[in-house]
């Protein structure tokens, strides 16, 4: 039984610290080339490997990541 995950990132509050990139076990997050209103390169999902483990949300200092998962 595997899980498929989805993360929702509040890009305006993200500061692009990249701590979530280091915590993600499946490397499905990356920094965007675009910047948000404060001038930070926010994070975004780059593939659909997410397993909904919430490691990124656990280490996010600003709590901008919400994690959802579904059985597949």
């Amino acid at each position: 039984m595997a899980f498929k995950g989805q993360i929702v990132i509040d890009t305006e509050r993200c500061k692009g610290c990249a701590v979530c990139l280091a915590a993600c076990p499946v490397q499905c997050i990356a920094l965007s080339k675009n910047v948000n209103g404060k001038g930070y390169n926010y994070t975004e999902t780059v593939n659909d490997k997410c397993i909904g483990c919430a490691s990124c949300a656990m280490v996010c200092p600003d709590g901008v990541i919400s994690v959802y998962k579904i059985k597949c």
Binding site: Q6, A54, A57, M58, I65, S66, V67, Y68, K69, I70
Partner: peptide, 18 residues
């Protein structure tokens, strides 16, 4: 709206900011 959409698709919430 995106969060609600995911919940409507059958996803369960694992984590969100308190």
């Amino acid at each position: 709206a995106r969060k609600q959409e995911l919940l409507n698709q059958g996803y369960t919430e694992v984590y969100t900011k308190t």
